[in-house]
Simulated assay, not measured.
Amino acid sequence: MQTASTNIFERIGLSQELSEIKRGTVLGCHLCNKSICEISLLLNIPRSTVSGIITKWKQLGTTAI
């Protein structure tokens, strides 16, 4: 069940942070040579988010926030 605050976020376009597991899944897909577009479609998250996670991992060696 969704809370009222979640519905408000969805209506005004704000999103919540991805879980550590989902960020790790993005990285795992990247390491398996999936493209950013493929990862985005597979996990149903924006390409810009996928790209940001991969870029941060390359620069800092972590996907932690």
Results as ranks from 00 to 15, higher is better:
1 M>K: 15
1 M>W: 15
2 Q>N: 10
3 T>G: 15
3 T>K: 09
4 A>V: 14
4 A>S: 12
4 A>P: 05
5 S>Q: 13
5 S>N: 09
5 S>F: 14
6 T>L: 14
6 T>P: 08
6 T>G: 10
7 N>L: 15
8 I>S: 07
8 I>P: 03
8 I>N: 04
9 F>Q: 13
9 F>D: 14
9 F>V: 12
10 E>L: 15
10 E>P: 10
10 E>C: 11
11 R>T: 07
12 I>A: 13
12 I>E: 15
12 I>F: 13
12 I>W: 13
12 I>L: 13
12 I>P: 15
13 G>W: 09
13 G>E: 12
13 G>P: 00
13 G>N: 14
13 G>K: 15
13 G>F: 10
14 L>N: 04
14 L>W: 15
14 L>G: 00
15 S>Q: 14
15 S>T: 11
15 S>M: 06
16 Q>I: 05
16 Q>P: 11
16 Q>R: 12
17 E>A: 09
17 E>W: 09
17 E>N: 13
17 E>M: 09
18 L>D: 04
19 S>Y: 11
19 S>V: 12
20 E>S: 11
21 I>C: 01
21 I>K: 14
21 I>Y: 08
23 R>F: 03
24 G>Y: 00
24 G>P: 03
24 G>C: 12
25 T>F: 07
25 T>W: 03
25 T>C: 07
26 V>R: 06
26 V>G: 06
26 V>E: 05
27 L>I: 12
28 G>I: 02
29 C>W: 02
30 H>I: 01
31 L>G: 02
32 C>Y: 06
33 N>F: 00
33 N>C: 05
34 K>I: 00
34 K>R: 03
35 S>A: 10
35 S>P: 00
36 I>L: 02
36 I>P: 01
37 C>M: 02
37 C>E: 05
37 C>P: 03
38 E>M: 11
39 I>N: 03
39 I>S: 02
39 I>E: 01
40 S>D: 00
40 S>W: 08
41 L>Y: 06
42 L>F: 11
42 L>H: 13
42 L>G: 06
42 L>N: 11
42 L>V: 06
42 L>R: 12
44 N>G: 02
45 I>T: 04
45 I>R: 13
45 I>Y: 05
45 I>A: 04
46 P>H: 14
46 P>I: 08
46 P>D: 15
48 S>F: 03
50 V>M: 05
50 V>H: 01
51 S>T: 08
51 S>L: 04
51 S>N: 10
52 G>A: 07
52 G>Q: 07
53 I>E: 04
53 I>S: 02
54 I>Y: 03
55 T>K: 13
56 K>Q: 11
56 K>D: 13
56 K>A: 07
56 K>W: 02
57 W>A: 09
57 W>K: 03
57 W>Q: 05
58 K>H: 11
59 Q>Y: 06
59 Q>R: 12
59 Q>M: 08
59 Q>H: 13
60 L>C: 03
60 L>D: 14
60 L>M: 10
60 L>S: 07
60 L>N: 03
61 G>L: 12
62 T>L: 08
62 T>C: 07
62 T>P: 08
63 T>C: 08
63 T>N: 10
63 T>L: 10
64 A>Q: 13
64 A>F: 09
64 A>D: 11
65 I>D: 15
65 I>E: 15
65 I>C: 10
